[in-house]
């Protein structure tokens, strides 16, 4: 693995070049809230962003995505598929937990039958990771073996190593191409940068307040499917979609049509297992009619189903659902309770 150094002012001019040559999506602050948005001005970008409200998964799996359009003229039916055309998008400023989430989504969308829409977007996206600079009270990535300074999954990964310098790790052939194209912005790695990164890791990990363990948990979850705990937990649940929408690994969607007999579009959009209409059958029957069943579905999906189906953890410990749940349903507590029950 190759590594370089980039100075902060050079990073800003590099981002300017990115903006000129690619579509850049990066964390920006709007009324104090962090979002990944298309960016035109490098100065708008948060270089050490912290936790965005929505994860960057929307780049690969947009909340609303038109799949194809149709048009009927007489006997003739025309279908027009909207798979993203080849283009280069730089997704800048992705933290390690969200980088891991892309692997979780890959397992879902890229296994056969491959999702052409996701695959095209994935292929068009260059990922620039950024190490965390702070730990929020809800962060627990280490539960899933994620380090807040490792860029696994990114093409290139930046770590602020102090004194206005970033350690740049080149992690994929695509990252290497990027480096070669913009070589003049980088400097040779210097002694001490790797140590600074390790020190940063140690200090960040120490700050993760609540340590929970998930090893071996998923195999035992089935035994508590009918436990009264889920009903009890659901009493305070509002049944809103916050936890699922801010989750970097949630991937349920609904497919809808919008149009007339003559022309229209089919699109898909995020769905949430907490919603009353989730899995509602045409007959009016819903196998998960009670909120407790839907809430249980969310936690089984995070803590068990994903492991069983894809052999990957369904949660990355980003802490968004913990931070944003209006009634403090905390997955770390759920894990702790469930461990005691199985």
């Amino acid at each position: 693995m190759d590594s370089k150094i980039i100075k902060k002012e050079k990073l800003l001019s590099l981002l300017e070049r990115f903006i000129a040559d690619y579509h850049v999506l990066a964390p920006v602050r709007e009324d104090g809230v962090l979002f990944y948005r298309p960016v035109d001005i490098p100065g708008d970008i948060e270089l050490n962003p912290g936790r965005s409200v929505l994860p960057p998964k929307g780049r690969l799996f947009p909340q609303t995505e038109a799949l194809y359009g149709y048009r009927v003229e007489g006997e003739k039916l025309t279908l027009n598929e909207y798979v993203e055309e080849e283009r280069q998008v730089v997704l800048f400023g992705v933290h390690p937990c969200d980088l891991r989430s892309f692997a979780v989504l890959d397992a879902v969308f890229l296994e056969e039958p491959r999702d052409a829409y996701f695959a095209a977007r994935r292929n068009n996206t260059v990922l620039v990771g950024v190490s965390c600079s702070s730990v929020l009270p809800e962060c627990f990535c280490t539960t899933y073996g994620i380090s807040p300074v490792e860029g696994n999954g990114a093409d290139i990964h930046l770590t602020d190593v102090g004194a206005g310098a970033y350690l740049v790790e080149i992690l994929t052939p695509r990252g290497k191409d990027l480096l070669q194209k913009f070589e003049s912005f980088f400097e040779d790695n210097v002694a001490g940068a790797a140590e600074a990164k390790r020190a940063k890791e140690a200090s960040l990990v120490k700050k993760i307040s609540l340590q929970v363990k998930v090893d071996g948990l998923h195999e035992k979850m089935a035994s508590i499917f009918e436990n009264p705990y889920w009903e009890k937990l659901s009493r305070r649940c509002l049944g809103c979609g916050v936890c699922t929408y801010v989750c970097p690994t949630c991937h349920c969607f609904d497919i809808m049509d919008d149009g007339t007999k003559e022309e229209g579009e089919r699109f898909r959009c995020w769905d949430s297992c907490l919603f009353r209409e989730y899995t509602l059958h045409t007959s009016g029957h819903n196998p998960r009619h009670a909120l407790a069943q839907r809430l249980r579905n969310r936690f089984f999906h995070k803590l068990s189903y994903n492991n069983q189906r894809y052999n990957t953890e369904g949660c990355v410990g980003c802490g968004r659902c913990v931070a944003l749940c209006p009634v403090n349903i905390d997955i770390r507590e759920v894990i702790g309770t469930v461990r005691g029950l199985v």
């Binding site: 929505l54 929408y245 919603f275």
Partner: peptide, 28 residues
């Protein structure tokens, strides 16, 4: 426009609202 664009339609505002007391919301 700027604020409305941002809405995720997670419906937390509806679910928490005591005035939203319909058992089935018109939007469902």
């Amino acid at each position: 426009d700027r604020l409305m664009k941002r809405c995720l339609r997670c419906y937390a505002c509806r679910e928490v609202c005591p005035a939203c007391s319909c058992t089935e919301c018109c939007f469902e």
